[in-house]
Structure formats: structure tokens, C-alpha cells
């Protein structure tokens, strides 16, 4: 997928800063204790999955799709939509017509 043919070191060091960056990417606010425990636990887990380095995957096609299925397409036929009330029913905040979120200040800001 990625164009980097140069594989990164398989188990890069997982620092506290990396954990915070990943948490930001995952939109997870972590308590200080979680930052600490995740740093050590994830390091341990990544260390363990390093065993995959020992598997020779030269020329092996990655698994993609389910059990060899392909080209599952549906016809362009309408089905019944939900009522607006049903669509909004689970929203923590809505005005009866729209979902509501805190103001988006910077359009498309990631």
C-alpha cells in the first residue's frame, strides 16, 4: 500500500511523546496514569509482535477481502430510509432537524 519499500525498523521505540501523538490521532484523551501504563504495555506488545520479522513473507500476497469473494455489487435500487426522528434518535445533541456539534471554527481542520 504505502510506497515506502524501505521498511521502517519493525519495533520503533515507543516513547511517551509517541503515545501522546497517537492518542491525539485517535482522539483519545488519556489520564496521566494511562499514558504511563500504555507506554509500557504497548512497548511490551510491540516487542512481542516483532516475532513476525521471523516469518518469511517474500512474494506472499497479503490477505484481502473475505474468503476469496470479489465483485459483490448491489443494484441501484432505493430502499426505505429512516425517519428523521429515528436518524436523530441516538444523537447526544440535536435540534429536531440537525445533529449539533460545538462550533467548527476552522473548516476542514483535521
Amino acid at each position: 500500500m504505502s510506497d515506502s519499500s524501505q521498511a521502517e525498523p519493525l519495533v520503533p521505540e515507543l516513547t511517551r511523546d509517541v503515545v501522546l501523538k497517537v492518542a491525539r490521532l485517535a482522539r483519545l484523551h488519556l489520564a496521566e496514569s494511562e499514558v504511563e501504563s500504555f507506554t509500557s504495555q504497548l512497548t511490551q506488545i510491540l516487542d512481542y509482535v516483532g516475532v513476525l520479522d521471523e516469518a518469511d513473507t517474500e512474494g506472499v500476497e497479503p490477505v484481502a477481502g473475505a474468503m476469496g469473494l470479489n465483485s459483490v455489487l448491489r443494484e441501484d435500487l432505493p430502499t426505505t430510509s429512516l425517519s428523521r426522528d429515528d436518524a436523530l434518535s441516538g444523537a447526544p445533541h440535536h435540534d429536531g432537524s440537525y445533529f449539533l456539534v460545538p462550533p467548527i471554527l476552522d473548516p476542514r481542520a483535521e
Partner: peptide
């Protein structure tokens, strides 16, 4: 940067 080393590698081992 890690996709190849982790997810892609794992999907190959899965094969």
C-alpha cells in the same frame, strides 16, 4: 510509515 511493517506484514503472515 508503519503500515508496511505492521498491518501489511501481518496480512501476509495471515496468508
Amino acid at each position: 510509515g508503519y503500515y508496511d511493517a505492521f498491518y501489511l506484514k501481518a496480512q501476509k503472515v495471515r496468508r
